[in-house]
């Protein structure tokens, strides 16, 4: 078995907003991403998924502090030199941002924006770059490449914008793509198209994909491994199929149970939600973070912070029910 492509150890991130207070957004994350694997990260809004994505590329705002390690190709990205990081961003690890409508430059042509990525990392002549841009646009499914190359952001539809940011992300054939809710801003009819496109490209180039989402339905049959986040922690992980079929953590059960009632034919784009809210990250309470909403809670849950247990091989879960 090959070693991991990316290894995250005890990652902690805290926001210190100007308004005061401390928001513990990530609390001791440990995870591994294997080469060529599709890893799904599942969690409600506010659980820290986007924070994780930015931290992996060290793109947190100045108001955040982080500790731990993000080891990629034998080097800790959290302490690497800025110039080294620049060469990794976009060329070895690429990020597909959450909202393409605001992630593209409004006054630069689409073709140039894709060309910029090539220019930043590869030694190509002008005409070679042009050629590559057109190939990439075809690859992400455009037919009228001539028009798209010269188009501006405001002339594109939501789906087209999403394809353009995907083209930017795959431009340098990275070994890892992080996609932060790639379908959440799209009309539900486009979800399948964009997911199929992502699945195709990563399969073709043997790229690892970290697919971040709050919607379990889009992970079914796509993700190899599944990690579930709650309030800044990974509370369950394992092979995707096994976790989906038989979730261990009460939170995962609730999430996946809800999504079963919500068939993909249903066009309502918002998912039903678990009753209750995530704990306020400004006021950390003792005990299990999920305790206030948990339907299977026990007496100890309010006072004891659950460790991570491995009740079965290749499955991890942070819940006191599985403590012997």
């Amino acid at each position: 078995m090959p070693g991991p492509l990316l290894h995250v150890k005890d990652l902690r991130v805290r926001y210190l907003p100007e308004s005061g207070g401390k928001v513990q957004a990530l609390e001791g994350l440990n995870l591994e991403i294997l080469p060529g694997e599709v890893t799904g990260i599942l969690g409600e809004s506010g659980s820290g998924k986007s924070t994780l994505a930015s931290t992996l590329l060290r793109l947190l705002p100045a108001s955040a502090e982080c500790s731990g390690c993000v080891v990629f190709e034998g080097e800790d990205l959290l302490t690497a030199a800025e110039s080294k990081l620049r060469r990794i961003r976009g060329s070895k690890i690429a990020l597909i941002p959450q909202d393409p409508a605001v992630s593209l430059n409004p006054v630069t042509r689409v073709g140039e924006q894709i060309s910029e990525v090539l220019r930043a990392h590869l030694r190509l002549s002008r005409s070679e770059r042009k050629q590559r841009v057109r190939q990439l646009l075809v690859e992400v499914g455009f037919e009228d490449v001539d028009r798209i190359v010269d188009a501006y952001l405001h002339q594109l539809s939501g789906g087209q914008r999403q394809r353009v940011v995907i083209a930017q992300a795959i431009a340098c054939r990275p070994s890892l793509i992080i996609a932060d809710e790639p379908t959440s801003k799209l009309h539900s009819e486009l979800h399948c198209q964009i997911l199929a496109l992502l699945a195709n490209t990563v399969a073709q180039h043997d790229t690892a994909l970290l697919l971040i989402t709050h919607d379990p339905t889009i992970l079914a049959g796509f993700a190899d491994r599944l990690m579930v986040m709650y309030a800044g922690r990974l509370i369950e992980q394992g092979p995707a199929e096994s976790v989906m079929r038989r979730p261990l953590h009460p939170y995962t059960r609730a999430l996946i149970g809800l999504s079963h009632g919500h068939t993909s034919g249903n066009r309502a784009s918002h998912l039903p939600s678990i009753p209750g809210e995530m704990p306020n990250p400004l006021h950390v309470m003792p005990g299990c973070r999920f305790e206030p909403r948990c339907s299977e809670k026990m007496g100890v849950c309010a006072t004891t912070d659950p460790q991570t247990f491995s009740p079965e091989s290749s499955r991890l879960v942070s819940c006191l029910k599985y403590g012997n």
């Binding site: 620049r86 060469r87 961003r89 976009g90 990525v117 930043a120």
Partner: peptide
Amino acid sequence: NAARSLGI
């Protein structure tokens, strides 16, 4: 931020 994430 997106441009930064692409290594420009």
